[in-house]
């Protein structure tokens, strides 16, 4: 990765142009050809430096609602339970935290009913005994920088 790559990565992260030919706009800013920008970005994506390129959406405005679930999982079952929880597309984040409720994961769905159904199914499938379901009532802040780098879209 050279200096040009680094500059391009900044541009593609924070100033991606909304244009019919976005890469030509970037090329002009960088003093490169469109062809070179495309070649560099393709390579950066292939080698995994760029994890994802595309849209960052507002899940709420797309109609999604979200919850945070906290489960008490015996230490010896963490990997097994995580495999089942993580297998759901609707689960976007899952962390082990130091607490008796040790597994914390987020779930998104297109309605509250759907969300409750998925949470109930996960609880049953994963054999979780104690689970807190803590649906979001209001979002005060989601930092866009962390959003993108993470993934974005913790509910």
């Amino acid at each position: 990765m050279d200096k040009v790559d680094r500059k391009l990565l900044n541009l593609v992260q924070w100033e991606f142009p909304v244009a019919v030919r976005p890469y030509a706009v970037m090329a002009e800013k960088m003093g490169l050809t469109e062809e070179e920008v495309l070649a560099r970005l393709t390579r950066l994506k292939e080698i995994g430096i760029i994890r994802r390129l595309g849209g960052i959406f507002n899940s709420r405005k797309l109609g999604y609602v979200g919850t945070l679930c906290a489960a008490k999982v015996p230490p010896g079952r963490v990997d097994e339970v995580a495999r089942i929880v993580n297998s759901y597309v609707a689960v976007t984040h899952n962390y082990i935290r130091e607490h008796e409720y040790n597994m914390w994961f987020t779930v998104l769905a297109l309605s509250w009913e759907e969300l409750d159904r998925i949470v109930a199914e996960i609880k049953e499938q994963a054999g979780i005994e104690h689970l807190l379901n803590l649906p979001a009532q209001r979002m005060f802040k989601v930092n866009v920088h962390f959003e993108v780098t993470e993934v974005q879209d913790a509910e």
Binding site: F57, S59, V89, V91, N94, Y95, I96, L108, A109, E150
Partner: peptide, 28 residues
């Protein structure tokens, strides 16, 4: 405060994914 000690999953939502209402593929 709740500190995280391990990241098990961190991804962006696949909006309108055909399988979003279902269990995905469990890799054993």
């Amino acid at each position: 405060l709740l500190f995280s000690t391990r990241e098990l999953k961190r991804t962006s939502m696949s909006y309108f994914h055909p399988k979003e209402k279902e269990k995905g593929d469990v890799q054993l």
